[in-house]
Design a protein around this nucleic acid. Structure first.
Lengths: 135, 135
DNA sequence: CATACTTAGTTTAATCTTAAACCATTGTGG
DNA sequence: CCACAATGGTTTAAGATTAAACTAAGTATG
């Protein structure tokens, strides 16, 4: 595959993601969540500290600070100072946060599902397998 | 695959893109280009009008205005008023723009190359075809 | 223990992005 | 023709994002 084609595949993939996410954004917003807040909330259980979230989500620390503040204000997150290390803020998803998270993920899933209807069943299976190989 | 898993696959895919792009961004910047400017420049030949670019790249018109201005200032793009419709600005990639574009795409291609090496040649072709259908 | 070094998270200030309103031109129905 | 809606593009002003500098806490070294 040529250089140009390789780059094209990825910019296609990128555009696909951006457009599907843009399409669900309003519905996610209705849950009281911004799309990126949703992604962040989805990683809190696995990575309960802001510094870890910044690393995993590939975003700068100040951005995490802002999102965590908003999620906390919205009641989707709580924070506790880690007794063992007073610098660290352990984050906890509240029940309301868990509910919003699962609804948000369902919306995302639906949105991608709709797009996937352009493909046949076997094509969908193939795509999923390819993405899993890459991710 | 459950709802949650579907969403997870796509958010993983999203993160993959973001992190690889973040990794090449400095090299692309050395060409005098921002990543998004590169994506835009790459579509100018196929879609030579700002309104079309906004639609294809899933970005608001004012954003296109800004990027086009910068690309023009950098000498990568020229614009002509369309004789047939005085509202339209036809965009043209300059030789310098073409050079920067192909270098930028090569950088992107290198960065994604490692990932794509996980796939066979035929799998890569299949992936491209599937993404084209979806995007 | 001091001193210097690293890490967690925040603040501030600058930059990037974009919604809303705008102007100019073109298309259209009466 | 002539309102009037639609389209292409820009401006402005507000909001989102983030680099740089900072505070506070922990770690390591002599």
């Amino acid at each position: 595959m040529s250089t140009i084609d390789t780059a094209k595949v990825w910019s296609l993939n990128y555009r696909l993601l951006v457009s599907v996410i843009a399409a669900v954004a309003p519905k996610i917003a209705a849950l009281g969540l911004d799309t990126k807040e949703l992604f962040l909330l989805g990683e809190v259980e696995a990575h309960p500290y802001p510094a870890e979230l910044a690393a995993v989500l590939v975003m700068p620390k100040p951005t995490v600070t802002v999102y965590v503040k908003r999620l906390e204000a919205a009641g989707f997150l709580r924070r506790e100072i880690d007794a063992a290390d007073l610098r660290r803020h352990r984050l906890l998803v509240t029940p309301a946060g868990r509910k919003a998270l699962s609804r948000g993920l369902a919306l995302l899933s639906d949105a991608f599902g709709a797009r996937l209807e352009r493909l046949s069943a076997s094509e969908r299976t193939a795509l999923q397998r390819l993405l899993e190989k890459l991710a």
